[in-house]
Amino acid sequence: MKMTEHLTPEEKKDMWILWRRSCLLNGSMQAIKRQGMGFTYSLIPLLKRYYKDDKEGLTEALVRNDTYINTHASTGTFLVGLTAALEKSKAAGEPVDGDTIVNIKTSLMGPLAGIGDSIFHITLRVIGAGIGITFANQGSILGAIIFMLIYGGTFLGIKYPLIVSGYTLGTTYLKELFEKGWIKSISKAASVLGLSMVGCLASSLIKVSTSLVIDIQGAEVTVQSMFDAILPNLLPMITLFIVYKLIKRKVSVTKIVMGMLLLGILMSFLGIM
């Protein structure tokens, strides 16, 4: 394969390790960190080698990657390759900033998920199912097989080139930028992207609204419509802010989850939400 020409035999092997391990990207999927653990798991064999004699570095790398990531299990593997390359540079003592790695991941995960969703869930799955259903309606097993080839086959096939290109980007262009000593500027730029993305995701993913109706001189006014008119999605942002403060105060994840579910039931019982 031409695109792996610049890789050493060992790096080629690494790419397959990343391919195999990233198959478990969704293996511990839940609503809190999504694929965070699957992502860290994908990198572990390489991290262990990169930070061979540096237990502290390995620990930092594990903690750094063990965080919220929500991307597509196939197109998102681009990030697995890219992060591996950045961790490699960092472990080699190059001036790669840990926060920058997190920021780059955060800013790219959404767009990659968007691309993955439109390629796989919207296009290929609908094409595969559309053709498959015609066969299935006649009682033919060909329907399932065609679906698996069109959707399942491409899903796995596209991962390898994506991992390699992510890794290549990380080892060449980004590394070049780091080497020029533009770390501060890069991490600033990455923060701009990362924070904007979190703002957008918070507004679109967090669903909090109120069904409260207040009576103003006989006229019934729904509180939510007032919010919508002035500051739409204000409640999700307030929720994010409160959770952020709780995490800063080291309140455990379990407590926050239980709190949210109980608060939900309480609010629902009182008819506020």
Partner: peptide, 25 residues
């Protein structure tokens, strides 16, 4: 109100992962 309440709680959950992320960056 139990099923509805669970949905309300579930709607807030993404704030947790994003909150952890925000605390890092």
């Amino acid at each position: 109100w139990v099923t509805g309440g669970l949905s309300v709680g579930a709607g807030m959950l993404p704030a947790l992962g994003l909150g952890i992320l925000t605390s890092m960056i």
